[in-house]
Each structure stands twice: as structure tokens, then as C-alpha cells.
Design a protein around this nucleic acid. Structure first.
Ligand SMILES: [Zn+2]
Length: 272
DNA sequence: ATCGATACCTGCGCGC
DNA sequence: TGCGCGCAGGTATCGA
């Protein structure tokens, strides 16, 4: 599926090089990608070993030493991939890290993504629980609802401090499974149901990453093709972009509008 | 404080 | 064929 799942898939691309030594770093100095961190600082990675990697919501963290981490966010169009070590820079490549065996590439044509270095032990210490974590409890979800009672459901789902990892497509999927219009105020929701569907869609997304990975692939991933092919037909996701797309439950033509500043699709028959 | 609207980019597909 | 427009999976930031 989208978003969270693609982050996880992207992380795995580079994770193939865990344990390998960085022998060269090529940065695109002028790129907006480096608005949080001077690109020249990335030279410090030379000679270091990529030890491990983690994801939290849509963020990824690649660890080189206990107090040296590279954080990557894909924005709207970022991609991570690997290539043979003789790879040379392509259009919109902003970071290429070379090991003896491979080139690790970050490419992002729209440049909404970002890359930054952290020189502390745990740069993610203050991040909120993710839907797939045990800390995303019923009590936690009740607190979220209480904290944002007037916020539209869709806006709460897209708030990365509340639901890290949920993106536009997953948010619509969750609203649709809830049978609730995405514009409805959060305060009217049942925490138990909300938590259930957030977690269903989150785990479902991650499962599809595993399914996809079980087939042999790939030289870098193409979000478009991956996303279009993997999720089941009984998810809203498969229908929401087609013009005249229909609800997989009741076959009603889906409605589309901008909600929480994002294009939103819903079934006017199943959601209100 | 919280909220919604806007800015930030490039590329693609559509209608004229 | 070419051009202009709207739109794209995200989020920092700035006003009300
Ligand atoms: Zn329906």
C-alpha cells in the first residue's frame, strides 16, 4: 500500500547494505533537500559503516555510529534505491553513498523530501507512538480525540503527531472502513472503532510490503506501479483515483472533494 | 494555542 | 504540435 508501506520498502532498499563501509559520498549541494543540514556535513559518512536502520512514520533513520545517524524523509516524490557501484549521477539524484558493492541513491524530483544528520544518541526520543506500536492503546486514542475534538477526522489522521505514517490514501481508506465522512469532527468518534480501523489499515499496508518483497525484485522501487498492483480489490484504494470510481462495498460512484487541504474520495452512500 | 490556507518543486496528462 | 491548466502519495510556516 501507500505511504507508510513505501517508506518501509524504501528503507529495505538501503538496508541491503547493512554492515558495509562507505567509501564515497556524492551530494547535490544546492538541493532544497538539505534545508535542515548543510550538505557538506555528509562527508563525515566516509569511512563509516552503515550499522542499522529504522523507520518511524514516514521518517527513516540510518545509523552509522551510536551518535551518528542520517535521517531521510521522502516527501511526495522521494525514492531510495541501490545500484551497482559504478553508478553515475542521474537527474534529481541528491545523495549517492558508495560502498564497494553498491551505490545507495536518494532521488527526489519535487524536492519536498529532506535529509539531515544527527550527532546525538537518540534523535527520535520524543516521537509519538505509531499506530502499529503497543503504545497506540485505546487510552492513547481517547487522548488524541480529546485533544482535537473539533478537528475533522481526515485532518487528525493526516496529523503526523497524532497518527505518524498515515498518508492521504490510507486516511481515505480508514474513513471508508469506519463508514464516516472524512470531514466529521473527531470529537464525535468512538475511540475503539477509530483505533481498530487505523490499525487494520496500517497492518494491512505493512503486510503488503512483505507480500511484495516475497517475490523477487527490484532495482529501486517505483511507487506508482507498486501501489497500483498490490492492495486487494476490496480496498477503497483500488478505486479512488479512477474517474467514476465506485465503492467496492455498494458500487455507488465515489465523491471527491478537498478536505483538510487534500484531495479526498469517499462513498456518499456508506459514509456520513 | 489551534486551525486552515499557502508555499515549496517538477512532471504529466488533459483539453483547447 | 504546443501550451496552459490542474493535479500529484507531504509538511513547514504564516496569518486569523
Ligand atoms: Zn459505498
Amino acid at each position: 500500500m501507500p505511504e507508510l508501506a513505501e517508506v518501509e520498502l524504501a528503507r529495505r532498499q538501503w538496508a541491503a547494505c547493512h554492515g558495509d563501509t562507505i567509501i564515497d559520498v556524492n551530494v547535490h549541494n544546492k538541493a532544497r533537500i538539505y534545508r535542515d543540514c548543510p550538505s557538506a556535513a555528509l562527508g563525515i559518512l566516509k569511512g563509516k559503516i552503515l550499522r542499522s536502520s529504522h523507520a518511524h512514520g514516514k521518517r527513516m533513520l540510518f545509523t552509522f555510529a551510536p551518535e551518528l545517524h542520517l535521517e531521510v524523509h521522502l516527501g511526495m516524490s522521494g525514492k531510495l534505491s541501490t545500484a551497482p557501484p559504478n553508478y553515475s549521477e542521474q537527474k534529481h539524484d541528491h545523495l549517492i553513498v558508495y560502498t564497494a558493492k553498491a551505490a545507495l541513491i536518494f532521488n527526489d524530483y519535487r524536492m519536498f523530501g529532506r535529509v539531515m544528520l544527527h550527532d546525538c544518541a537518540n534523535p527520535w526520543a520524543d516521537l509519538p507512538p505509531q499506530p502499529q506500536d503497543s503504545k497506540f492503546s485505546l487510552i492513547h486514542v481517547r487522548k488524541l480525540i480529546k485533544r482535537h475534538p473539533k478537528k475533522p477526522l481526515k485532518a487528525l489522521l493526516l496529523d503526523q503527531n497524532a497518527c505518524p505514517g498515515i498518508g492521504n490514501w490510507m486516511a481515505d481508506e480508514i474513513c471508508w472502513r469506519l463508514g464516516i465522512h472524512p470531514g466529521i469532527a473527531t470529537g464525535t468518534l468512538e475511540a475503539k472503532k477509530l483505533r481498530k480501523e487505523i490499525r487494520f489499515v496500517t497492518f494491512g499496508s505493512l503486510k503488503h510490503v512483505a507480500d511484495k518483497n516475497s517475490k523477487a525484485s527490484s532495482d529501486g522501487f517505483a511507487p506508482g506501479s507498486y501501489v497500483a498492483n498490490v492492495p486487494p480489490k476490496n480496498w477503497l484504494f483500488q478505486h479512488r483515483w479512477k474517474k467514476g470510481g465506485i465503492c467496492p462495498k455498494c458500487k455507488t460512484t465515489l465523491a471527491r472533494d478537498t478536505i483538510a487541504s487534500r484531495t479526498t474520495a469517499w462513498c456518499p452512500n456508506c459514509q456520513f
